[in-house]
């Protein structure tokens, strides 16, 4: 199943610094909850471990992060993270497209995140996947801001945690205008959704 999240946010840092941090896979990985890079395969590909813990639920993945597109002129960056479940239950792909824009001392970040989940997690986790994706993304943004501000990300924020989730209780008020979580679950529904668009 696929979840697509569009989000725009501001970072109170100059665009050059944000860009520099985004080009550093280790910095990016530090901000994504549960991710740890283990090996550099090439200039654009890195291996890592991904652990997901949600209450009693545990999953661990062999991950590969790829810089699929780096366009310095347009300040556009595409990052793809692929994780294959260590027990053969499926895979998760997270494609992150970010476009930076300077506006004064602030950097505007336009982001689209496409999450594709295949296997057992899609079969049983469908009621949670879009919320969890949303929260991982939110936590990533918070961590990224922390890092850019020169602060340490505390250990708790390196895992998915309840605080991030509880924070979205107000999702409907704060992010409704900029985020559209779409869930495509059947041929028929899809057709209808397309018609509505």
């Amino acid at each position: 199943m696929k979840v697509s999240i569009d989000k725009n946010f501001e970072i109170a840092q100059p665009v050059s610094k944000v860009w520099e941090y985004l080009l550093d896979p280790y910095k990016v990985a530090e901000c994504v909850p549960g991710v740890k890079l283990t090996e550099k395969i090439s200039e654009t590909e890195y291996k890592g471990d991904v652990g997901l813990k949600l209450g009693p639920v545990n999953a661990s993945f062999n991950g590969v992060i790829t810089y699929a597109k780096v366009d310095e002129v347009a300040r556009e960056i595409h990052l793809v993270g692929k994780g294959v479940d260590k027990k053969g239950k499926g895979s998760v792909e997270m494609a992150l497209e970010m476009k930076l824009q300077e506006s004064g001392n602030v950097t505007m970040v336009n982001t689209t995140m496409n999450v594709t989940v295949i296997g057992v997690m899609a079969q049983f986790g469908s009621r949670l996947i879009s919320d969890v994706s949303d929260h991982i993304f939110k936590q990533f943004v918070e961590n990224f801001q922390t890092l850019l501000a020169g602060k340490e990300i505390d250990d708790q924020d390196k895992q998915i945690h309840g605080g991030a989730v509880a924070g979205t209780v107000v999702k409907s008020i704060t992010s409704k205008l900029t985020s559209g979580v779409k869930n495509i679950f059947s041929k028929k529904d899809k057709k209808e959704e397309n018609e509505n668009e």
Partner: peptide
């Protein structure tokens, strides 16, 4: 209806 924040799923 306004203040809740449901997620689309099979339901």
């Amino acid at each position: 209806g306004e203040d809740c924040s449901p997620t689309a799923d099979l339901r």
